[in-house]
Amino acid sequence: MDTIFGVPAVALYGQLMLGLINGAFYALLSLGLAVIFGMMNVINFTHGAQFMMGAFVAWMLLEWLGLSYWWALLLAPLIVGATGVVIERLMISRLYRLDHLYGLLLTFGLALIIEGVFRNLFGSSGIPYRIPDQLQGAMDLGFMFLPNYRGWVIVASVVVCFGTWFVIERTKLGAYLRAATERPLLVQAFGVNVPRMITLTYGFGVALAAFAGVLAAPIYSVNPNMGSQLIIVVFAVVVIGGMGSIAGSIVTGFGLGLVEGLTKVFYPEGSATVIFVIMAIVLLLRPAGLFGRA
């Protein structure tokens, strides 16, 4: 059997694949955080809860309305994004004049409420969600077997991340958005409705989290705590990448997923902490983050 650095090649590829899957979620979530932070200067602590809501909405659509995974992939981000729009209008919009820390505290409180409600309604044990029929089975790549669904997660994440990057960095809408980030008053004077843009940006960031949640539903069991641990790791990812750049957060997300996968092969005990250790090293060498502006 082939080995690489004394590790069976199959095990190595398998862990790298799992790492890429985790990286896909880190990338989608940190991208959403970066989009929201760029526009509103708010760190959205509710992001993990909204990721979890995406998975639950997918499950509800299937169980209660009989709508398939593919409908969920479209509808769940819209539904959860709409709740995000309501939250922004009713609450977050009142805090823009204050210290940014209040935004963090508010969204932390909202995360407690949302997770508490789901825990009370659905319990903490987790509910399975079936992989859609079209994505059952696995492909033989020659050097390893790739379950179709996992391949799909990676492709979907890359496409959505790239699409978001393209819209923000390469279209007219994105140009308005970036301009409003730099000089909101000036952009408003040119006749752009900046408050509505902020609201929709928050809704979009939340929808990204929900999309990631739907992707995650068949892989992890759908449970109320699935977001809270993940979001703290994503915070570390965001600190490592720096929030200055959209492309940076995507690259950092996938990269750290791979590093985590490698750690699982070579030093399994360290796999839960490796991202935090990397964060500490990055803080020492480049406090603004790999892609951040000082």
């Binding site: 505290l105 409180g109 995360a111 407690l112 409420i113 009370n120």
Partner: peptide, 8 residues
């Protein structure tokens, strides 16, 4: 927990 979140 929900009440605490509400207080927050």
């Amino acid at each position: 927990t929900v009440v605490q979140g509400g207080i927050f």
